[in-house]
Design a protein around this nucleic acid. Sequence first.
RNA 1: GUGAGUGUAGCUCAACGGUUAGAGCACUGGACUGUGGAUCCAGUGGUUGGGGGUUCGAUUCCCCUCACUCACCCCA
Length: 431
Amino acid sequence: MSREQKQQAISSIKGTRDILPEEARLWQMVEESARKIFELYGFRELRAPIIEPTELFEKGTGASSDIVTKEMYTFTDKGGRSVTLRPEYTPSVVRAIIEHRLDLQPQPLRFYYIGPMFRYDRPQKGRYRQFHQLDVEVFGEKDPAVDAEIIEMAHRLLQAVGVEGVTILVNSVGCPTCRPAYGQALREAAARVKDRLCPDCQRKVEINPLRIFDCKLENCQAAARTFPLINDFLCEDCREHFRQFLIYLDLYHLSYKIEPTLVRGLDYYTKTTFELVVENFGAQNAIGGGGRYDNMVKEFGGPDLCGTGLAIGLERLLLVSKIEAIPQSYAYFAHRGEQAKQASLLAASYFRSCGIPCLLEFKERSLKSHFSRANKIAATWVVIIGEDELAAGEFQLKDMLRSKQYKGSLEQLARIIIDKESSRKSALSKE
RNA sequence: GUGAGUGUAGCUCAACGGUUAGAGCACUGGACUGUGGAUCCAGUGGUUGGGGGUUCGAUUCCCCUCACUCACCCCA
């Protein structure tokens, strides 16, 4: 590229990136197994718009949350409305339920979605401004068994894409009945030791004392050990819900860690919260998380419908997954001369109608150069159409992986490809 | 938003402040005109992220800026 070209070149916006074909193949594979698994659990896809009224997130995600106060892509559209690129998905589903009276359908309701979210963060490993989430939500199911089932489903997905070393962190954050008392007690305890805390944590005393638990400094940790824990403040209802939730996790033989300080940054959670974290993954080690939000639908003016859900970060999932792309199998056409080129067009058309992927290139090449090209682009089959073949009315087919060559009509060659491919596929799935 | 590190060819990396900034891989072509992966040869590709300064001279030193990376923060 010349200097002028370089200066004129437009590059992608900070925190966004192109997913090129090689990587997109992996995305397709993960998305496919996610869809399959979600549908195994009775979830159906619900696609909501990427752009929503700003107030949806101010009310839903929470006006005091970091996401809303400093991370949203918000702007005014030509009609003077304040609109926002969604930073998360749950409020959109809640809006859709109320808007379309989905609560009048037989409950519980199970929805899933895969798509981009937007948060104006400083980009980092596993953190982008446009990132993608797998999201599932259940409405109208109070039973803590469903909280456990969602985690079991997430676990299944992680296994399917080869993620290892995942820890399940769980907690209960209580409900509007019991949480205020805990917040009060925590704030008082923090205030008592305020002068022993680092400047950072001194600020947290007022804003969010729970965050003091996360400080790495020894002094702050020592102080935090004297703080009360939420478990001792849960009301009867929340305590029982949490107890049963753990029983169901045990039933699935899922090992988990109770993390009394796990709060999560969204304001709407009640009772169950959980997070999936991976080892050796730096600061962005949470690949998924979620919990219960029993009051959100009601707070939006909808029916009294409880909810519980899960979100998994696709970028982070891919960073830790061990899946490998299965190379696409396809036929390449080695043609010589105009007549052969035309015959190739027809042959490829016929192969495609048989369901065989074909790659046709039109440049005139020597046969050797055709093979060299086929090898470079990893074609699995080469169909040879030259003068001899045209004269004989019989074509040649080379299996590039096994270096075996066949001769016959197009129908015969298509049959050979279909047979060999199906035996190759069944061999792969047996592994 | 705060702090630190790194920016040289498409990729991975060289070049003491001093000739025309090099190599491997990749790409294109040839040796090789009907059978791929190898080898050999040649070619394309840079104004060293951008701007300013110091200097006879800057890829190298200084400042600003942008991008990337990592950490804080927050979260997926």
